[in-house]
Design a protein around this nucleic acid. Structure first.
Lengths: 203, 203
DNA sequence: GTCTATAATTTGATAGAC
DNA sequence: GTCTATCAAATTATAGAC
C-alpha cells in the first residue's frame, strides 16, 4: 500500500541524510521537512529512526542507480559516459554549495561500526552500483572480470573525490578523478578503430 | 605548555573520531577514554567540542602524514611504496574489524556543511597529504604538475576505497585501488631501465 | 588545575485522544 | 490513520567547591 505521507518521509530523509549524515539528522527535522505529523514516523516505521534510515538508503541507492543508467546507456560510448557522469557530479556539487555529493557515503561511514542493518543496506547499494557499471562496461566489450575491477576502481575514485571536494570546496578532485577514470575505461576498451596509441592485441 | 592530560584528550578524541565520526562521539565518552576529569575539556578547550574536534583532526592529519612519509622515503621506489601503503591500509582495516580507515574522512563529510573551522582543518590536512605525496612523486622524476594530479588521483582512490571497504566489509576495494594507483605511478614514472612496455620517450 | 553537581536543551520514542 | 502532548534519557556546557 503506497502512502503519500510515507513516501514524503522517505524522500525527505534521503535528502537530509545526503547533506547532513545520519547522526546530525533528527526525526523532528525529517517530519518538518516532509510536512508530516510526528506520530507518522512511528506509525509507518515501527523500527524508528534506524528503519527509516535503512529505507532512505535503499531509496537513494535506487535513484542514484537510475542516474547511472541514464549515462551508461547500452550501445553508447562508455568513455564519454564516464566523462559526462563525473562532470555532472562536479556541477551538482558546485550548484549545491558542496552539499550534494554521494547520497549514502556519509551515512555509510557513520554507521559502519554501529548499525548492522544500515551497513548492510549501504553495502547492497554499493554492490548494485558496481554491478550496473560493470555490466555496462562488459557490454562495451570489456572482459567481465576486468569490467568489475574497473567498475570498483571508478567508484572508489568517485567516492574519494566527493570526500576531498566537499572538504576542499573545490571540484578539482572530481575533475581529476573523472579524467583518470575515463582514461582507464579507454585503456580497457578493445581497440575498434585506427589511430589508437597502445594497440595491445586483443582476442 | 604541554599538558599530559590535554594530550590524552586530543589522542582519545582522534581515535574515537576515526572510528565513530564526530556526531556519534560525546564529550563524556572522550573524557572516559582519556581517563580525564570532565571539567578538563572546557579548561583546555574553551571552544568546547568543536575546538577539540578541530585539534583532533589536525593531530590525526599530522600522524597519518608521518605514516605516509614512512613509505614514500626519498630515493625509494614510489611504485613499491604505493603498493605497500595500500596493503598496509587493507591490513589495518581487517585487523580493526573495518573500523580504522581514514582518520578524518567520516568527520570531513559530517561537518562539511555545518562547521567551517573543522571543515577548514580537514581541507588543510588533505592539502598537506597531497603536497607530501606530490613532492615524493616529483622527487622520483615526475613533472610537478603531473605529480600533483597523480597524488590527488591516488588520494581519491584511497578515500573511496575506505568508504566501500567499511560498508562492504571487504578489503577488495582497497586492493583494487592499490593496484590501480601503483600502475598509474608506474606509467607516470620516467623510463629508467630496459624492458618497459610503453617506452614513451621522455626528456 | 581537578573534579562534581547541575543547568538548559535536545534527542528518540510512546500514549492516547480524535 | 492523524495529530498532540509528553516522557525518559542523553547531550553540551557551566558554576563553583576544593
Amino acid at each position: 500500500m503506497a502512502s503519500a505521507t510515507r513516501d514524503r518521509i522517505v524522500e525527505a530523509s534521503s535528502e537530509l541524510l545526503r547533506k547532513q549524515g545520519y547522526m546530525a539528522t533528527g526525526v523532528k527535522q525529517i517530519v518538518a521537512e516532509a510536512s508530516a505529523p510526528f506520530g507518522s514516523i512511528y506509525h509507518f516505521f515501527p523500527g524508528g529512526k534506524e528503519q527509516l534510515g535503512e529505507e532512505a538508503i535503499r531509496h537513494s541507492g535506487a535513484l542514484y542507480g537510475q542516474l547511472l543508467d541514464l549515462f551508461f546507456v547500452p550501445g553508447a560510448d562508455p568513455v564519454a559516459a564516464t566523462e559526462s557522469f563525473f562532470a555532472g557530479a562536479a556541477a551538482t556539487l558546485r550548484e549545491s554549495g558542496y552539499a550534494d555529493a554521494c547520497p549514502i557515503a556519509t551515512v555509510a561511514l557513520e554507521i559502519s561500526s554501529s548499525s548492522e542493518p544500515m551497513r548492510r543496506a549501504c553495502a547492497e547499494v554499493f554492490e548494485s552500483w558496481i554491478d550496473a557499471a560493470a555490466g555496462s562496461l562488459a557490454e562495451a566489450g570489456i572482459e567481465p572480470g576486468r569490467a568489475r575491477t574497473l567498475a570498483i576502481s571508478m567508484l572508489c575514485s568517485l567516492e574519494g573525490a566527493f570526500v576531498l571536494a566537499r572538504a576542499l570546496r573545490s571540484t578539482e578532485p572530481v575533475e581529476v578523478a573523472g579524467r583518470t577514470s575515463a582514461a582507464a575505461v579507454r585503456e580497457a576498451l578493445p581497440v575498434r578503430r585506427a589511430h589508437h596509441r597502445a594497440g595491445r592485441a586483443r582476442g
